[in-house]
Design a protein around this nucleic acid. Sequence first.
DNA 1: AATGTATATGAACATATGCTCATATACATT
DNA 2: AATGTATATGAGCATATGTTCATATACATT
Lengths: 102, 102
Amino acid sequence: MEQQEHAFLSSNTVEDASRIFKALADPTRIKILYLLSQEECSVSHITEVLNMTQSAVSHQLSLLRNLRLVKYRRDGNTFYYTYDDEHVITILNQVISHIECK
Amino acid sequence: MEQQEHAFLSSNTVEDASRIFKALADPTRIKILYLLSQEECSVSHITEVLNMTQSAVSHQLSLLRNLRLVKYRRDGNTFYYTYDDEHVITILNQVISHIECK
DNA sequence: AATGTATATGAACATATGCTCATATACATT
DNA sequence: AATGTATATGAGCATATGTTCATATACATT
């Protein structure tokens, strides 16, 4: 009630923002989300394109699922993932464009 | 030369994007950058507002300096920091607005 | 010159993160 | 029912990260 004269962020807001940026902070997750921004993908397809182990990809998808950044549908044994947060994809694309036009 | 049919990101681009998002992924750095988005601040002012140790703040400022996200001017013993990357501030504010209007 | 003040920096430590390896699960096929 | 296939998951491990503590640096003041 004294030392904070200017508008500041609530700790919830800061935590939420941190969570979003953390999700985007890892190269593997950037690649996955970028792929999904272009097309629905099966896990095995992601695994092949990124040239990673199935387990590593699956762990990252699990993390992205928990954050509600991706969702999936199942068809037999195949799981097809799509992105589930338009805003986060927009942010990702903005940063990528900004980097590429340098 | 065969398994990559769609446009994909160069690893440099991915690394650069990762670096930017990593910078924004920590609550302390979010608070610092948000403060600096509003006004030029001395280290001691940031320390008081965030209620953290001088050392912790200084370490984070050092990290942000290395990433060229902030710069400073010196006036006697006091160092005044400002942000140095308009685009990153824009991204931060976009994410914050998005979170707050939920 | 000596002391004070604001900030930076290195080492150490605890926690978080991302991967691998082994294995579980669930559906498909035979 | 038995085997195969696609994916998920838990444990373990190595590395990265953020803080603290102690101390260095550089300028100011007396």
